[in-house]
Computed example of a mutant assay.
Amino acid sequence: MLARSARKVDPDHKGWTHWRVLNYNHEYGFGVVDAEAAVTMARRWNSVGGSDQQKKCGPYRVELNQPIAQAAIPATGLGMNQAPEGGIQHAIPVPADCDIRHIEHTYVKMSVLDATKDEEAFDAGSLQMTLTAPSGQVATLALPHLCFESPEGGAYPKPTPCTGLGSFTFGVTRFLDQPARMQKNDQWTLSVVDRNTQPTARPAQLRYWELTLYGR
């Protein structure tokens, strides 16, 4: 109800997308909560049941052990609603026995290692990753970014390589209320590219990824 009744923040922002009655923006989520609209909606809301009636599909896991290609950031920048090109694009088909018509939660688990299989050696902050649903809607999981560490003694934080993708799970709300599979498309596609093109950059590989869906 909160997502359906929310109001757009900065409605002229180019990042807004639309799925049926839901608006979404990677910077603003579903929008700002409109309490009055939510209460009005609640008065005529038909209960969908408790969490004990929620369905689960997956996890669907694929072992890849595939190197992640490096590609420079495009001159047009990094779009939050577009899958990156030039790296890995791998799809997991959701089988017909998954009858979720309204997704509530989406989880993507993965392992990214460097060439020595050391999960802490690769700088995960250089990756751009997205997940594309059968609807064609795109969720950005990660953009290239810096990580910082705080030295002892209260010194100013300094940049440090990002770690932690040895076995990491992303939780995604982007696909709220969407079906697990469409009539003509059952593919969920993970796209990963390494934006660090420096000659000294350590290569990495996507060891595996898995998809789990919850909904009704």
Rank of each mutant, 00 (worst) to 15 (best):
T116N: 14
Y214H: 06
V21T: 14
P134Y: 12
D10I: 03
M1K: 03
P93N: 10
L146S: 15
V193T: 09
Y156Q: 15
G50D: 09
L190Q: 03
N196I: 10
A121V: 11
M110V: 13
Q66M: 13
T132W: 06
A3L: 06
G215M: 03
V94L: 00
T17D: 14
Y107M: 15
E120P: 01
G125P: 06
N65D: 13
T160H: 09
G79C: 04
T173I: 07
P67I: 11
Q183W: 02
I88Y: 02
Q178E: 15
K117P: 03
I88K: 02
A133G: 04
L64S: 07
G31I: 04
D97S: 12
P161I: 05
D12Y: 03
G166A: 01
T200Y: 04
Q183S: 07
R195M: 04
T76E: 07
T200F: 07
R61H: 06
G171S: 13
S191R: 02
G215I: 05
M41K: 10
R216V: 13
Q66I: 15
R181I: 10
G86A: 02
A201I: 06
L131S: 06
R174Q: 11
A142K: 08
E152Y: 12
F148W: 12
G87F: 05
P144F: 12
S5R: 09
Q66K: 10
R44D: 14
T17C: 07
F122N: 06
D97T: 13
W209G: 05
A124D: 09
L165M: 14
L190A: 06
A83E: 11
W188M: 01
L131C: 08
E152D: 12
W209E: 05
S126G: 03
I88M: 01
G171M: 11
A121E: 05
R43H: 12
V39P: 00
L211D: 08
F175A: 09
G58T: 08
P93M: 05
T17Q: 11
M80D: 14
E210G: 11
A69T: 11
A72Y: 00
E149T: 07
Q198G: 10
L78D: 01
V21P: 11
G154K: 10
P134L: 10
M1F: 11
R207A: 15
P144C: 09
K158Y: 15
L127P: 02
K8R: 09
W188V: 03
I92Q: 06
F30Y: 13
D177S: 15
A133H: 08
V39G: 02
Q183N: 12
P134R: 05
G164C: 03
L2I: 09
P74E: 04
S111Q: 12
T130Q: 03
K14L: 10
I68G: 08
H90Y: 10
V192R: 01
A133P: 04
P59V: 08
C162L: 12
D12V: 13
T76N: 04
L190T: 08
P84R: 02
R61M: 07
Q198R: 14
H18P: 00
L213D: 03
L206N: 01
V138L: 08
P59T: 08
A75K: 11
N23K: 04
S150W: 13
E63D: 07
V112P: 02
Q66L: 12
W209D: 06
E36A: 12
R181G: 06
